[in-house]
Amino acid sequence: MKRILLLLISLAIFGCKGDKSNDMEKSSEPKTDSIMDEDIIPDSIMGEEKVDFTVEEANKLAELPLGCINTEYPNKLGQTLENAEAMGEPKELHPAFYGCFDWHSSVHAHWSLVSLLKQFPDLEKKEQIKETLKKSLSAENIKAEVDYFKRPQSDSYERTYGWAWLLKLSEELQTWNDPLAEELAQNLQPLTDLVVERFMEFLPKLNYPIRVGEHENTAFALSFAYDYAEAVKNQELMELISKRAKDFYLKDDNCPVSWEPGGFDFLSPCLEEVDIMQKILPKNAFNLWIQDFMPELTQEDFSMEVGEVSDRTDGKLVHLDGLNFSRAWVFYHLANKYPEDFKHLETLANEHIAYSFPNLMEDSYEGGHWLGIFAIYALKQSRAGE
């Protein structure tokens, strides 16, 4: 009976924006040990669980993307070669996003610098950050990125993880009231439009969602793309994402959360699904859905052990630090949007961040080039409820 009611509610509100309580904000050799470990560990977690995201921590976290955006090697290109002429140096192929080991990591490194500047306008290295962004996100560089995506063998390049982060970068620029942001968003727009077009073409053809804890996770991509569509009022993209999320997930029951985490996970398959559904369903429908899908989340004594990393020099095993940050941001989303039902998840989010945050500067380059960005996104969500 509950499922029938949920389906009726969902059909009745298809295309409706729902009752969102959180409005979109308007508002050389690589080295990862340039900052001493004790410098990156704020006093707030030396005996407490919550990491206070202050300008001091923002200054330290900014060093991570600044340290990799212009670092060309090591590099994982991930390209399909149509011929010998398609080969090239990373900076030649991707003049905007060649650093930070791979394309998507470079994209979210740029996002993190924009996000930090928006949240903390008085960062110590704000001028260096602005110059870095202007140099990378020039109109000429973005044109070259578009040309790469239009290569015959690049239709699926960075699908869908890199696409999602590109839209997150665009969203961050377009919701930042700053002349620099306006300039950079305009430069980025041709690539943004191309990625939106790719989403619009691909999602109707995807018959089954990809339910893994790594890059291909469909729910993660839908969630980030929905944020972008909502921010820029792209109703067509919002409706497509909402429809596909319902197609994929509305009938899901009893997510096997006890199977998580997988050894290489940096996303939670169960929680990423929760994240997109809380965005597209109104409160009453979401409440019914969560009771079928993951009812334990509503219990005040719900617990989930952090993902434990055994070797932070292993680029795959260190994914579990990323899992802790991505779980945390989903917990914060729920606690901020529906505090009457999910406020207790803040404590769990804090625990996950507190486990992995002190290790950001200990990682090899395999972890250091991206984990700070996940931390920044999770900490941003922790501040959203203040």
Rank of each mutant, 00 (worst) to 15 (best):
F286G: 05
I9G: 11
N207A: 13
I276G: 05
K17G: 08
L7I: 15
W163V: 03
C68S: 07
W370P: 07
Q291G: 13
I241S: 10
L188N: 03
A225F: 11
F331W: 10
L288M: 13
E131Y: 01
E183S: 09
R159H: 13
L166R: 01
K31P: 00
V274G: 06
F101A: 03
T313S: 10
E362G: 11
E366N: 09
K130P: 00
Q128F: 01
S223V: 02
K283S: 15
F374Q: 02
Y332C: 04
A378Q: 05
Q189G: 04
I40F: 03
A219R: 08
I45P: 08
N324C: 04
S364Y: 04
K118L: 06
N336M: 08
M277I: 05
E239D: 15
E182Y: 01
Q153N: 14
W329E: 15
F14Y: 14
C255W: 11
T298Q: 15
Y208D: 08
R327D: 02
L133W: 07
A86G: 14
F220Q: 10
P261L: 08
S303W: 04
I280L: 07
H94M: 08
A378W: 06
N207R: 11
F97W: 05
K243M: 11
F374G: 07
E49H: 05
L191M: 14
A96G: 03
P65K: 02
R198K: 15
S303F: 08
Y73Q: 07
K233L: 05
P121H: 13
E172A: 15
D147W: 00
F286K: 08
F220S: 06
